[in-house]
Nucleic acid binder design. Structure first.
Lengths: 213, 213
DNA sequence: AACATGCGGGTTGTGTACAACCTGTCTCGT
DNA sequence: ACGAGACAGGTTGTACACAACCCGCATGTT
């Protein structure tokens, strides 16, 4: 991978994280000049990154106005969650990878981290751990297009969900998450990747229920 | 929509069509300067379009070498087809739109066009009609994220399939396609969008079988 | 003959200046 | 007082020049 591609990837992931973890809440105006200065590049390569984020629906650029972080419409939120449920099931059914001891170790580590989080709930730590666990789940299928699509949909809605966590019960969300992680580990220990997908599907569904309910 | 966005959309669709309908077969080197001259713009806005096509996996840009039309690996082809099968089913099950008389009219028109194609098989006409029918199928669900994803996956693999049509039997492919269109119409006339999705799923599956078999 | 090396042409990546555009404000006329 | 229109400031879009890079070829060395 070339030098330019690496810079591009770093910028992309940095900005994407900032958007999805609410460092830039929906409606924030970004400003190409300022960002370019912060990262020590000119506007040109930065615009390449912003264009990609805009294509993925995380940003919206308006000529003469600015580059704004998007919000998600309730109806679109419903569509995306419906899709995510189905993709969660597919990620356990299509081209499952072998469940190696390393995978089980990672799952057990997540159980520990979730337990620690539950003991000391924190919104930011919750968001990061949730993202990490989601990414781990994507590694269970060898179907890379499926993994990429599922990731994009998750990132598209994660910030909406995070923004509402305060109005829900953070401690309860942590508890539910810890339970999901434990159930996933149990499924993997039984060698049943499909069950892990169903666990995820169920939790996506319930999460949406709490979100809109 | 602004002026710049319209230009961008036109360029994007034009180039995407050229790639997916094999005007630019895999491996073709595009050349930014030449394309920019053809469309009467500078390299800058053109590069914005090429970047998007690269993000979607249709192009690959290599510094100092050129912008190349990508190929699709057999293993990735398998993954994408597996996904497309599932998404076809979902497109009939998730948020189905009302089947209006206009929808039925369009379906009947496709039956006629498919019949005409069958009478006079032509690779290019086949490719275009197939794309049009696929796009029509996407309008049957109100779940826009699902439709977008399914479209992207179709466009990603369509050219590989088209490239192999000559080594298959064009007349037979036209015949099978005409049957798919008729079956879809029958499902829609019965008011059963889910059945239409299953028809599509079955044909995606069989199409892949003929492709690799 | 085989191989290393430098060079030249061609291509994409980056920086910069300017054009196009939107929005809030201020002024002027009614 | 109120509204229309011009203006100014700030932002993204475009064009162009140059840097960085890859590849094939010629040349010289062993």
């Amino acid at each position: 991978m070339s030098d330019a591609d690496l810079r591009h990837a770093r910028l992309y992931e940095t900005l994407r994280t900032r958007i999805c973890l609410l460092d830039y809440p929906p409606g924030t105006k970004l400003g190409e000049e300022a960002l370019a200065a912060e990262f020590g590049v000119s506007r040109t390569p930065l615009r390449r990154v912003l264009a990609r984020l805009a294509d993925e629906g995380l940003l919206e650029t308006r000529h003469g106005v600015g580059t704004l972080v998007t919000d998600v419409e309730p109806s679109e939120l419903a569509h995306i969650y419906a899709l995510r449920m189905e993709l969660a099931e597919l990620s356990g059914r299509l081209s499952p990878r072998e469940i190696t001891p390393e995978v089980l170790d990672r799952a057990r580590a997540f159980v520990e981290e979730a337990r620690a989080l539950q003991a000391a709930p924190d919104p930011r730590a919750f968001a990061e751990l949730n993202l990490a666990f989601f990414t781990f789940g994507l590694t269970l299928t060898a179907n890379t297009p499926l993994a990429e699509i599922a990731e994009r949909l998750y990132l598209r809605t994660a910030r909406i969900w995070l923004a509402r966590i305060p109005s829900l019960d953070l401690a309860r969300e942590c508890e539910i998450f810890a339970a999901e992680v434990r159930e996933t580990l149990a499924a993997l220990e039984a060698g049943d990747a499909q069950a892990a997908g169903l666990v995820r599907r169920a939790h996506v569904s319930m999460s949406y229920g709490r979100l809109v309910g």
